[in-house]
């Protein structure tokens, strides 16, 4: 099934409480080499047929306007997987 995968991360300079909680747990488990954890989102948009260039552009717009909030997050990747 063709899909467009949108990856969204909290902005680098913002506190990521979920990532911090996981990092703390990993530290407790003795993984001293892991210095930080950040948690973002992977969102899959599914298509019947491989999306056209126009549809890919539309998906990028959706990623910027709706799937992420530019004040607090960055879209780090939009990948087409046919």
């Amino acid at each position: 099934m063709p899909k467009i995968i949108v990856e969204v991360m909290p902005k680098a300079d913002l506190l990521d409480p979920a990532g911090k909680a996981v990092a703390n747990a990993l530290q407790r488990k003795g993984n001293a080499e892991i210095t930080n954890v950040r948690i973002g989102k992977r969102i899959e948009l599914h298509y019947e047929v491989a999306p056209t260039e126009e549809q890919i552009e539309a998906a990028k717009q959706i990623a910027a306007d709706f799937l992420s909030n530019g004040v607090i997050e960055d879209v780090v990747a939009v990948t087409v997987e046919n």
Binding site: L14, L15, P17, K20, A21, N69, V71, I72
Partner: peptide
């Protein structure tokens, strides 16, 4: 309102979590 862009900025998880 913020997500609708009627007001600027954003709201994130409380600092103390």
């Amino acid at each position: 309102l913020v997500e609708s862009h009627l007001l600027p900025g954003g709201l994130i998880r409380n600092e103390h979590q």
